[in-house]
């Protein structure tokens, strides 16, 4: 109960600010309409009209919620207007990319920890890969793959993987190197093969790092997928929904898709968090 009050206070403050901003940003249209009709606008009119526009500059929170509700519950799941449908398209590509990115990050991290040559050669490239704006890479990847006849989920998953492998790589390099000299010496006294050092010491020690990275990685994978849906002229996915909303000035649709994406990201992070809690508890590492 102690934590719920501050949380609600912050939410309430955001909602109040948002409503204020909606009135302010949407008032121009109301004044223009009134000037054209030659009428005066009262304050009450101003407020009610700024909140009920079809294409507001900034939709009011209740409009966004209504749009979100309509998109989720008001449509058939197979409908092109359903956010569940678009959400699923995005989610499936996100998950595919996340799995791919996690595997790539893990394998590279294991290589880097075990080989000095890989440490020197792979890490700079991994860092360089993240300095290039994803918006510049995504269209190229999609065009190149499309020319090879690969379309749909795979190109999006690759871009999602491209964004999500990096946090896993960095976190796991740190995590696999977490065991101190004494723990490594202990295994040396047993003449332990390297594979067993990895399985019995390095991987278990890296678990807290792994989950921290997975949370960043899964959110990055979602961003990657949505970005990949923007330039392709894709017809499905939350990214496509955002894009078509901006083509036709459907700001409510944009915001609803945005919120759907945010909720999806929050849900994914929460799922990773739940797996983390269960795993660390079973490993006796949660306290």
């Amino acid at each position: 109960m102690k934590t719920i009050l501050p949380i609600l206070t912050v939410v309430a403050a955001i909602v109040v600010l948002w409503y204020g901003a909606a009135v302010w940003l949407n008032s121009k249209w109301v004044y223009d309409q009134a000037a054209r009709a030659g009428t005066e606008v009262t304050t009450a009119q101003l407020i009610s009209e700024t909140m009920a526009q079809e294409r507001p500059v900034l939709p009011a929170p209740h409009q966004v919620l209504a749009g979100l509700w309509d998109g989720v519950a008001g449509q058939k799941i197979t409908s092109k207007r359903s956010l569940v449908y678009h959400g699923w398209v995005t989610l499936s590509a996100t998950m595919a990319g996340f799995v791919l990115g996690t595997a790539a990050g893990l394998i590279l991290a294991i290589g880097i920890v075990h080989s000095r040559a890989m440490d020197m050669s792979v890490m700079p490239w991994a860092i360089a890969s993240q300095t290039i704006p994803i918006l510049a890479i995504a269209p190229m990847v999609i065009v190149v793959l499309a020319s090879l006849g690969i379309k749909g989920l795979v190109p999006k998953a690759i871009i999602a993987a491209y964004l999500s492998f990096f946090p896993i790589l960095v976190g796991m390099v740190k995590g696999l190197r977490a065991p101190d000299g004494m723990q490594l010496d202990l295994l040396r006294t047993y003449n332990t093969p390297r594979a067993a050092v990895l399985w019995k010491l390095r991987l278990p020690s890296s678990m807290p790092y792994l989950f921290a990275s997975l949370k960043v990685g899964v959110a990055a994978a979602l961003v990657g997928t949505i970005v990949a849906e923007l330039p392709a002229g894709a017809t499905a996915g939350l990214g496509a929904r955002l894009l078509s909303g901006s083509y036709y000035g459907q700001t409510v649709q944009i915001w609803a898709a945005l919120f759907a994406a945010a909720l999806l990201a929050a849900a994914l992070v929460a799922v990773v968090g739940a797996i983390e809690a269960v795993t660390l508890k079973r490993m006796g590492m949660a306290r």
Partner: peptide, 8 residues
């Protein structure tokens, strides 16, 4: 010097 048991 330290027990160095695996916490997991």
């Amino acid at each position: 010097q330290a027990a160095g048991l695996y916490p997991w």
